[in-house]
C-alpha cells in the first residue's frame, strides 16, 4: 500500500514538474559533497566548508533565490546517497562520464581540467616507466577507472579520500598519484608534504574516461532542477560572478572551452 501511495505521489510530482516553468519553483537545494579535494572543496582550520565548488554552489542558490544547505558524504557512497534522497544534487567536482550518466543526470559543466600523474622529482618517472609501480588514486574516480581499464601493468591502490593518497605518496608507500591537475598542484605539490614532487606525463582529457568536464549530478527524474542549475551556471558566466569566484582560486579561466 505504502509503495503504491509513494508511486502515486511521485507521479503527481512529475506531472506538476512538467507543467510548471523551469527554475520557477526551485526554492531549496540540498547539496551533497565530499571535502577532501583542495582547492575545490575542503575545510578551513575551524572545520567550515570552503573552496571553488562551495562558492559556485552558493552563487547558484543566489541566482535561483533558493535556500542552500550542504551535506557531507564519503565519495564511495555519494551517488547512492543522492538516489536515496539524502540531498538533491552533488556538487563535488564530479566528472560527467557515460557510466555515471546511466545512474544520474548532469547539468552542463561548471569547469573542465585535465588529469596528471605526480611523483618524486628525484625518481624521474615517466608514463612508460610506471610499469610495475604502485599508483594511488581516490576510489570510484575517473582516474581509478582509467588505470583499471588501460594500465593493467600498474598496481593500483584506491583510497577513500584524495587526502589519504597525498599522505601515502608523501610517506613513500606509493610511487605516484593520479588526479585532477589543479588538485595535484594546490592540494599536494604546493603544500609542505609535496615538496620535492612534480607532475609528469601528458594532460589526460580523453572524454571516454575523463568525461566532458565537471558537472553537478541530480536524480534522473529531477529534470526541472537540472535545467534550473544549468541556466544558473550560464547566468553566472554572463554576469561576471563566475569570473570573480574563478579569480579567487585560479590565475586562468577554469571553465575551459
Amino acid at each position: 500500500m505504502k509503495a503504491l501511495h509513494k508511486a502515486a505521489l511521485l507521479g503527481v510530482a512529475i506531472a506538476m514538474g512538467a507543467v510548471t516553468s523551469a527554475s520557477a519553483d526551485v526554492t531549496k537545494i540540498r547539496w551533497g559533497t565530499e571535502a577532501g579535494y583542495k582547492p575545490f572543496m575542503f575545510k578551513t582550520a575551524d572545520g567550515e566548508l570552503t573552496g571553488f565548488d562551495y562558492d559556485i554552489g552558493n552563487a547558484i542558490c543566489e541566482v535561483l533565490k533558493a535556500e542552500c544547505t550542504w551535506t557531507e558524504q564519503a565519495w564511495d557512497g555519494i551517488i547512492p546517497a543522492l538516489n536515496a534522497r539524502k540531498y538533491d544534487a552533488i556538487l563535488a567536482s564530479m566528472s560527467i562520464t557515460e557510466e555515471r550518466k546511466r545512474v544520474v543526470d548532469f547539468t552542463g559543466k561548471y569547469y573542465q581540467v585535465g588529469y596528471r600523474f605526480v611523483g618524486k622529482s628525484a625518481a624521474g618517472l615517466t608514463i612508460e616507466g610506471l610499469e610495475g609501480k604502485t599508483v594511488g588514486v581516490q576510489t570510484g574516480t575517473v582516474t581509478e577507472n582509467y588505470l583499471r581499464a588501460e594500465r593493467p601493468d600498474i598496481t593500483i591502490k584506491a583510497y577513500p579520500t584524495q587526502d589519504e593518497v597525498w599522505l601515502d605518496l608523501a610517506a613513500g608507500r606509493i610511487d605516484a598519484g593520479f588526479a585532477n591537475k589543479i588538485v595535484v598542484q594546490d592540494g599536494f605539490i604546493s603544500t609542505d608534504k609535496g615538496a620535492g614532487f612534480e607532475m609528469f606525463g601528458p594532460d589526460y582529457t580523453e572524454a571516454k574516461y575523463f568525461g566532458e568536464g565537471t558537472g553537478i549530478a541530480v536524480r534522473k527524474q529531477d529534470g526541472e532542477l537540472k535545467e534550473a542549475i544549468t541556466k544558473a551556471i550560464a547566468e553566472l558566466r554572463a554576469s561576471g560572478k563566475y569570473q570573480e569566484i574563478n579569480a579567487k582560486y585560479f590565475v586562468f579561466d577554469i571553465y575551459g572551452e
Partner: peptide, 22 residues
C-alpha cells in the same frame, strides 16, 4: 579495507565504486 587492503569488504567496495552500484 579503509587502508587500501582489498579484503572481502574491500572487494565489495571496489565493485560498487567501479560500477556505481550499492
Amino acid at each position: 579495507s579503509t587502508i587500501t587492503v582489498i579484503d572481502i569488504l574491500g572487494a565489495g567496495r571496489t565493485l560498487n565504486a567501479q560500477y556505481y552500484v550499492v
